[in-house]
Every structure is written in C-alpha cells, then in structure tokens.
C-alpha cells in the first residue's frame, strides 16, 4: 500500500475528528461569540479537507475542479442574497 496516500487519508480523518470534537467542546463551554459564523466556517474547513483527501480533488485538473468550485460560489450567492433580503426587510430583527 502506498504509505503517503494512506497518511493523507488517516491525517484527514484525524483532522476531521479533532475539529468535530473541538467545535462541540467550544460550543458547550460557551466560548464562541458568533455561533453561526463559527460553525459554518468549521463546516467549510471540514468540507475542504474531505474534498481534498477523500474525493481526491487534489488529483483533478483545475478544469474539472472548477465544477464543484462554481457550484460552491453560486451557493454562497444564493444564501447571502436570501439571508440579506431577510435581515434587511424583517422589522423584528432590527
């Protein structure tokens, strides 16, 4: 078995588990200020690790990698526009 590849997989697994445990502990200890931003950022970081290591995006040419990347960017546009429309127009959110 190729040691280096195995190392990437196991390393990614370690990073994912550590970040998952870390976020649970930080939340339960009530340390985090902006909860939503923190948790979504952690989820994005974990997603990048998964895409890089387990989905082998690292081995793809940039022309192929642009597909999920475009999807992600467009998703950000949809989410941010939708949320902005809420925050900007809902009176009880000030």
């Amino acid at each position: 078995m190729h040691e280096r590849d195995a190392l990437v997989y196991v390393g990614a697994w370690g990073a994912l588990i550590s970040t998952a445990i870390l976020e649970v502990q930080l939340i339960l200890l009530d340390i985090v200020r902006n909860l939503t931003a923190f948790l979504l950022s952690m989820a994005v970081i974990q997603s990048v690790i998964i895409a890089y290591a387990y989905q082998h995006l690292r081995e793809e040419r940039s022309s192929t990698a642009i597909m999920p990347f475009t999807s992600f960017i467009m998703l950000l546009v949809l989410v941010s526009a939708a949320i902005t429309s809420v925050l900007a127009c809902t009176p009880y959110l000030g």
């Binding site: 939503t36 989905q55 793809e60 192929t64 990698a65 597909m67 999920p68 475009t70 999807s71 992600f72 467009m74 998703l75 949809l78 989410v79 939708a82 949320i83 809420v86 925050l87 809902t90 959110l93």
Partner: peptide, 23 residues
C-alpha cells in the same frame, strides 16, 4: 463531478432553507 456539483447545490439549497427560516 458535474453531477456531484449539482448535488452540492441541491443540499445547499436545503441548507439555505434552514438558514433562511432560522434568520
């Protein structure tokens, strides 16, 4: 990858429904 990107958007839309309703 083309299909998965579409799936990302499908789930992303579901997640944005959650964020929208919650906000």
């Amino acid at each position: 990858w083309t299909f998965i990107s579409s799936e990302v958007f499908l789930f992303g839309s579901l997640i944005s429904v959650y964020l929208f309703i919650r906000s």
